[in-house]
Design a protein around this nucleic acid. Structure first.
Length: 419
RNA sequence: GGGGGAGUGUCCCGAGCGGCAAAGGGGGCGGACUGUAAAUCCGCUGGCUAUGCCUUCGUAGGUUCGAGUCCUACCUCCCCCA
């Protein structure tokens, strides 16, 4: 059973992408025999996907690399409803404009992982389910699709249990989400011959619903594959950087900060992440994973650079690595640390340290927070710990490079550049 | 429809005789130790033009020198009865 015949499932399995799989042998046979089209849905809840979505994108990447056709489905229709799975409360409804803007923005990263112009079956596809969902006729939909769903059964899914058990209201609108997602699967199988839907483990119920619906509506046999829910070894949810979420879009999180996120991976996660997030060959990963102690730091750099290179390009990844090297290993000032411009005149007049950290650099949330950090020794100007919260920054604090380096903790640095 | 209970620091949970910027956790952030790791230990965890001022305990009023705490109405949720 661990011996898969298809390249795709073998790869998924050995690299740790598989959590649950419907009809293993059936799917394996199909993938070994022909080029299969498979999809993953992405909700347009934000203008960018974050690190958590990367694993999904990597699955699509491997799918294409092993001779199949990936489909990235944008939830332009389902986004109007909102997935209640495993959520404790309803999300705010998004306007159509927000949804469309988010989709336009999210789309940009996919081209780095998938080839839309060539490949098996003519390349990857980007599809928006608004295409069929927004024009649905309610009564027809109820009669054609709704009759196949048992409310009794829908209520039994784990994904809605928390809501029901806590007796928190689950609106009818949200309750329909799983029906729409199931319908998507069927529609995709009809329109694009999609046979497989992948997703995070929280999507299992939704996906299986689609398979069932397919049976009843006469599609070919459909399949499900889910990936494990990602947490770090110490149990934290993935995807938070020093300044918030680990966004994939460069305009929301720069390559340097993205690189830093992966550089700070816990030891215990390194091997797992190499398999999931890089395309390094397995024997190379095995070699790297054998390193321990402080040698593992070199492996973390490789990890960070590889992941960043896929997303932002090799050059940006290496620049990020170099910036980090200068900053952390030489303790110097690297010119392309994140920087903030400040009018030269203001600097002439003097800028209070607290304001510099809070208002200018945005390293801390407020002046009060800055003051507290001064007390616990967390703020540094040009690598010298700030001891006086009334200190004032002036042009005399400029380094030979013509900037002032502000540091919050050991890892967060911002350059103040007079203009 | 009737009866009972609950909503607390905009991250979460949660204590709170009428004097409260409000106990305690968790989480988060900083420091020490290390290897830009984990674990551990220590500190911090409303805002400000700051020995003071402002805003916070579901919403709106009221009693009081003073209300998270008492009263009234409303909203939302939970339990029991019908």
């Amino acid at each position: 059973m661990t011996k898969f015949r298809s390249d795709f499932l073998r790869t998924m399995h050995e690299r740790g992408f598989v959590h649950q799989l419907s009809d293993e042998s059936g799917l394996d046979d199909l993938l070994a025999k022909e080029s299969v089209t498979a999809y993953i849905g992405f909700d347009p809840t934000a203008p960018s996907l974050h690190a958590g979505g990367l694993i999904q994108i990597m699955m699509l990447h491997w799918l294409q690399a092993t001779g199949h056709q990936p489909v990235s489905l944008m939830g332009g229709g389902t986004g109007m409803v909102g997935d209640p799975s495993f959520k404790e409360e309803a999300r705010k409804l998004m306007t159509v404009e927000t949804i469309e803007d988010n989709i336009a923005s999210i789309k940009r990263v996919f081209a780095n992982y998938l080839d839309y112009s060539s490949g098996p079956k003519g390349g990857a596809l980007m599809i928006n389910n608004a295409e069929w969902l927004r024009e649905l006729n309610y009564l027809e939909f109820l009669r054609d699709v709704g009759r196949h769903f048992s409310v009794n059964r829908m209520l039994s899914f784990d994904s809605v249990k928390t809501r029901l058990e806590r007796e928190q209201s689950l609106s009818f609108l949200e309750f329909n989400y799983m029906i729409l997602q199931a319908y998507d699967f069927v529609e995709l199988s009809k329109r694009y011959d999609v046979r497989l839907q992948m997703g995070g483990s929280d999507q299992w119920g939704n996906i299986v619903n689609g398979i069932d619906l397919g049976h009843r509506m006469g599609t070919k046999q459909l399949y499900a594959l889910t990936s494990p829910l990602l947490t770090t070894s110490s149990g934290a949810k993935m995807g938070k950087s020093v300044n918030g979420a680990v966004w994939l879009n460069a305009d929301m999180l720069g390559p340097y900060e993205f690189w830093q996120y992966w550089r700070n991976t816990e030891d215990a996660d390194v091997a797992r992440f190499l398999k999931l997030y890089t395309t390094l060959p397995m024997d190379e990963i095995a070699r790297l994973s054998a390193l321990a102690g402080s040698e593992i730091n070199e492996v973390k750099k490789i990890l960070a650079t590889e992941i960043t290179a896929m997303l932002h390009g090799r050059a940006a990844a290496e620049a990020a690595a170099e910036t980090a090297r200068k900053t952390f290993e030489e303790g110097g000032v690297a010119a392309d640390l994140p920087s903030v411009e400040v009018p030269a005149g203001e600097l002439e007049a003097g800028i209070g340290v607290l304001a510099a950290f809070a208002e200018k650099a945005g390293l801390v949330a407020s002046n009060g927070e800055a003051r507290r950090q001064v007390k616990s020794g967390g703020l540094k100007v040009n690598d010298a710990t700030v001891t006086d919260d009334k200190a004032v920054l002036t042009p005399r604090d400029l380094t030979p490079e013509g900037v002032i380096k502000l540091s919050f903790g050991k890892k967060k640095h911002v350059l103040l550049k007079p203009v």
